[in-house]
Structures are given as C-alpha cells and as structure tokens.
Design a protein around this nucleic acid. Structure first.
Lengths: 256, 256
DNA sequence: CGTTTGGTTGATGTATGTCAATATTAGTGG
DNA sequence: CCACTAATATTGACATACATCAACCAAACG
C-alpha cells in the first residue's frame, strides 16, 4: 500500500487538482506495475528512454557516474513520487536511476503520459508539481553541498528523510526509527564526502546519542540535537508537518 | 534585443510548440516590462509572491541566505529565461532573486500565467520545459559541488556561461570574450568556496593563460585547457552547440 | 578626500581526503 | 553445511585542499 506525496506550501487552490492528478496517473500506470530487486538499474545514463515512472514502494536514486569513476547521487526518490518525467521532453538521460531497495514500480510510455498531460489539466498540474518539488529539494541540496560541513549535511539528509516519510504517511511524525536502505558508500555519494568520513561522522553521532544508522535502519536518539546540527541548512520556510502547512494531510489512496 | 532560450536535447516533436509558447509568453508579458538596476532584489525570500518573470536582458540569480550569514547562490539566470514559475504553485519563496547586472524584466501575475497555462498547451509546454531545464542544470551543479575541486567548479561555471550565451545567440560560439557581471564574492557564493580561494584559483588560471576574469569580462585564453580542467564534471551527453543537438538553432524573436 | 567595495597576497589552521589494516557480514558455489 | 569471496563497516596515521586571519592596494563614490 502506498500513499500519494503530500504537498507542503502548495497554493490551496491547486490542492484538489493535484490529488485528482495523482489518482488519475496512478490509474493509468497501475496496469504496468512490476517489482525490481535492490540495485536494479531502471534507467541507464546515455540512453533515450521511453517511460515515465511512479515509485509505488521502495527507494530509488538518480546518480551520475563521472568519467574518472567518481559518483554523485543527485536525488533520492521515496514512495509515491514520479520520476523520469523528463522522458516526455528530452531524448537523453544524463544520469542513471537505480533502485536502492526492493521496489515496486509503475510506468507508462512518455507518449501516453504526454497525451494525458495535454488533455487533462489535473495530470499536467501533478506533473509540473512533481518537477517543482524536485527543484525545491535540489535548491536545498545545492545549499547543503555548497555551504554545509559534513556533519551538517548528514544531519540535514536524515532530517529530510524523516520529514518526507512522515509527510507521506509512511511513518508517524513522532516515530524515531525508520528503514533507510543506503550503505555508507551510497550516503557518501549523496553527501559529496568519502565513505570513510561518513563513517567517522556517524560514529560521533552515535557516541553523542544523536542518531544510530545500522542494518538498514535509522534510529534517532535525540531529534532536537539532530535538527539543531542541521539548523542553518534547513529551509526556514519549509515545514514538512501538515500542521504547519495549514491544511490537513491529503487523503490516502490505496492501489495495491 | 533578446533571443529565446535554445532547447538542447529537446525531443524534436515539441520544438515548434516550445517556440510558439515562448512567443506567446513574451507577448503576454511585454506590456509589463521594467528596468532594474544591478543588485535589485526582485523577490524577497520568505514572502508570498504574485508574479512570474521573464528576464529579457541582463543577469539575475536565485540566492539563499542562511541564518548564520552564509550565502549560497543556487542558480543564475541569463536572458530569455523565465523565473519564479513556482509562484504559480507555491505560496512561499525560500530564496531571493536579485539582479546581478542592470536588467530588463517582464512579468505577469501567476494567476494570469496559470490561466494561460491551463488554456494553451504551448504555454504549458514552455513552462514545463523551463522547469526541466533548470532541473537539468541543478543536477549538473549538484555533481559539481559534490565531486568537483575548486578549480574544476570554476572551470565548469565559466564553460557553462560561455555555452549558454553561445546557444542563446548572445555571443558567437567561437567568441572567447564575454561580459560576466559577477564579483569574486558572488562567484564564491555560487561555487561554495571562499572569495579568497576564488581569487587564488583565478590567479593560477590567469598565470597559466587559461582564462582572465577582470572588470566584468571573461577572456578565455585557452578554451581547450579550460574544458579539460572541467572535463570530468561536464555532462557528457549535453552539448550546447546546435550542431551537436542535431537540429538548427531556433529562430530568433525580437521583442524590443 | 575619506569611505566603501572589490581585489590581491602571505602565514597559519583545520576539516576532510588518502592510504592501510582489520573486523564483520553477506552472498555463492561445492 | 562449509569454504571462499566480496561487500560493508571501522579505525589509525598521515597528507592536503581549502578556510581563516590579517594586511594592503586600487578604484569607485558620496
């Protein structure tokens, strides 16, 4: 079972349209669902690609591999999100998308989705929203990479995971333990630091009782201290809790 | 006089639609044009904002100010680009947009643009394209910040400026000198390093005859060496020259 | 003509990378 | 079930890219 993404900071006038769009896209894609093991390459960099996806369950990431072997994880997708919307407009993906855990994916050819997008304003709105939401996260992550220390970045990332899972209803907002399938190497690629240094920072967090990252789980020991570590990097105007946003969390859609 | 943005890697089937969208948006906004001095704050972080903009001439940037005074420049806008499209969907901007040079701006209330976007597929496509194009640049910049050294980042940024100006027709592709209004402090905020270090890297570039950045101009002494410095960070599948993309540069629209 | 802003350079400090060694765990084939 | 291998995690010693602090110059500016 999956829940749709929630819509922090959305102009209230569009909310219903987005929820309809979410339902409609799910309906279109439901017939084309499949399961992928962890670490499956869904989209290969350097290829044209015909599909747009919806991640129904599991984690996935967009990653760029550099010609000298360095690797940067650009964006992490959580359940309910659409990805590869760019398939609709561009004929080349520069980065690959892979699953980080066992995942359930749905998809549709870009032609079919673009046809629906042209015909139905709800679907267009939902697609545009997805891209804008990703852009918002990329903005924050550019700030994190440009200005944050290793500690700040790691704290920011964990707070971000927690907030996104809470908003989408995958965990309760006050849950302090959740599944997180990234290895230290993958965390390092996301954070722009070495895996060895990730390990060191995790150790200081663990020793201070702030968070423990182990065996595919994050256990937050001191949420206040974690957010305090990330405080300067946190977008002061984004609050991921529905209370802050001023309207209730969106209705949930079950599709399995 | 301004040219519209060009569309590298765009699926050919959408090209005409995007160009029509560009013309239509320009037509809608033309009546609401104004000039701003350098360093004018166009959008203030932390406010709702009613407008969407088109930068007809000059440079602008999206910047986030952290609570402890650090500053990160997230994205730089060049002539022909739309910005603050998010005004259509979200009720809060987390970063401010300011001009980097004297600039000519056009704008429209987000309601008017969203109405046009709902009614006209060309306009919807043009808006979506803008957001996707920004996302593409953000992806590349995340890679640069996450994996690049100071030298690599600076080289990447200068190559990016040159390529974008060339594709949009503001300079000839073989021109090695162009206007660039950023100060070293502003470059530092974009690159995620200190201004002092920017200065040092610029000095090594200058001493090696690679590039000279002075008095608001970039003069490339050795283009090959500059791209070689940035080579690992360059998106191998993005080529900003129209030749590579496989179709001619878009027709130019004059609107002043 | 002082004041501000942008730029330049040197001396020194530090966060993080690199190299190396060793557990620990997970997967794989016999 | 075991032996073998390959990931993953952990920790220490050492190296370095970049930050910080400080001083100074030049041009713009009111």
């Amino acid at each position: 079972m999956t829940r749709p993404a929630s819509y922090p900071l959305l102009r209230p006038e569009h909310r219903d349209s987005l929820e309809r769009g979410d339902v409609k896209i799910s309906a279109l894609m439901r017939a084309h669902a499949f399961t992928a093991a962890a670490n499956t390459v869904v989209i290969e960099a350097g290829t044209d690609h015909q599909y747009v996806y919806r991640l129904r369950d599991g984690w996935a990431s967009r990653t760029r591999l550099l010609s000298d072997g360095r690797e940067q994880c650009i964006l992490i997708f959580l359940p309910g999100e659409l990805f590869a919307l760019k398939s609709m407009f561009v004929c080349m993906h520069s980065d690959s998308v892979r699953t980080l855990s066992r995942a359930v994916l749905e998809r549709l050819t870009y032609r079919d989705l673009h046809a629906a997008y042209s015909r139905d304003a709800d679907i267009a709105n939902r697609c545009t929203w997805q891209v804008m939401e990703e852009e918002r996260r990329l903005h924050s992550w550019v700030v994190g990479l440009g200005q944050g220390s290793a500690e700040e970045r790691l704290a920011l990332l964990l707070v971000d995971f927690h907030g996104r899972l809470a908003v989408s209803g995958h965990i309760a907002a006050d849950t302090l333990r959740f599944e997180m399938p990234l290895t230290q190497v993958q965390l390092a690629d996301q954070l722009g630091i070495t895996a060895i240094h990730v390990n060191r920072v995790l150790k200081t967090f663990r020793d201070r009782g702030v968070v423990t990252v182990r065996d595919g789980y994050v256990t937050i020991g001191n949420f206040e201290e974690l957010t305090r570590t990330a405080r300067h990097l946190l977008d002061p105007y984004e609050r991921t809790t529905p209370e802050y946003v001023g309207y209730p969390a969106p209705a949930r859609v079950e599709n399995a």
